[in-house]
């Protein structure tokens, strides 16, 4: 049913894969949508107006995201354009609230996986507000075209790293390895480990089918090796995330990969072994 809905939305011009669009084209599509579906714009404005009156309750986020997504890509993109007055006003009054709302919009846009949103998403990856940058990076990761992968790899921010975790292609493995090797200890390494776990999730690769699973196996092994290599010297928070990532990758050879740690970093080795043996 979800696929059917996606197809219906796509056929209605509301979402769906397509070519990346130049900004002028995006503006033109927004203008067309504004004429064709003014009610969608009004609904999104209503959401922003409501946020000016009260904080966004966390329990409302799924519903809000659904409401946003239901309005279609271009009405959402309209709100995300630089200088869009609705969010600007909210930002001036309630910056934290505006960041969450903008992040939600970007998250909803990203889930449509429409390349027409690529520029908007990429532009937001560098924003200072974590909710905005991370949602945008997730969106770019979900698009996951070659350019998107290259963009995320070139952008060294923790948000961009987290976006790599949503780009479940074998090629992402190499980018994650490089990120794991190069990341300084601290938030960058934590983000790299989290992204590696999300990208390498064994359940996710099984969901993508045996062919995808096989095609990615070498990359997943290489990422596991890179994780183990950082485990030896990683500080506590990063160590926890690295162990979690290895558990998510769930490769049978993990104990062998980690064996050298018994001598070089026995504490880390013991932590991994304990978690590995206790896993479901």
């Amino acid at each position: 049913m979800r696929r059917l809905v996606a197809m219906l939305l796509a056929s209605a011009g509301l979402s769906g894969a397509g070519p990346a669009l130049a900004q002028a084209d995006v503006s033109a599509r927004i203008a067309e949508a504004r004429v064709a579906r003014p009610e969608a714009f009004a609904r999104l404005r209503g959401i922003v107006d409501a946020a000016r009156l009260a904080p966004l309750e966390r329990r409302s986020l799924r519903s809000l995201a659904a409401q946003m997504r239901a309005q279609g890509l271009y009405p959402m993109l309209a709100l995300l354009q630089p200088g869009a007055p609705e969010l600007a006003a909210l930002r001036a009054e309630h910056p934290r609230r505006a960041a969450v709302l903008e992040g939600l919009l970007l998250d909803a846009v990203g889930r449509l996986r429409d390349p027409a949103a690529s520029d908007t998403l990429r532009a937001a990856v560098s924003r200072a507000e974590p909710e905005v940058a991370e949602a945008a990076a997730r969106g770019v990761g979900r698009l996951c075209l070659d350019d998107d992968l290259a963009f995320l790899e070139a952008n060294g921010s923790p948000a961009a790293t987290s976006g790599l975790g949503f780009c479940r292609r074998p090629a992402t493995g190499a980018a994650l390895q490089r990120r794991l090797v190069a990341a300084p200890e601290g938030p960058a390494l934590v983000a790299a480990a989290q992204a590696a776990g999300n990208w390498g999730s064994s359940w996710a690769w099984e969901a993508l089918g045996p062919e995808a699973g096989s095609a990615s196996l070498g990359e997943r092994r290489a990422v596991a090796q890179a994780l183990v290599a950082r485990l030896a010297t990683a500080p506590a928070e990063a160590r926890t995330e690295i162990v979690r990532a290895l558990l998510l990758l769930d490769l049978p050879e993990t104990p062998e990969l980690a064996a050298p740690l018994d001598e070089s970093a026995p504490e880390a080795a013991a932590l991994l072994r304990a978690r590995w043996n206790a896993r479901r």
């Binding site: 999300n198 999730s201 996710a204 969901a207 993508l208």
Partner: peptide
């Protein structure tokens, strides 16, 4: 505005995002 939530067993099992989230 509502849209159907109906989803099949195989669609859930084939949803990589859902499975990754569940594993986490």
């Amino acid at each position: 505005n509502e849209y159907p939530a109906d989803v099949t067993v195989d669609e859930i099992l084939g949803d990589a995002d859902l499975m990754a989230a569940s594993q986490q």
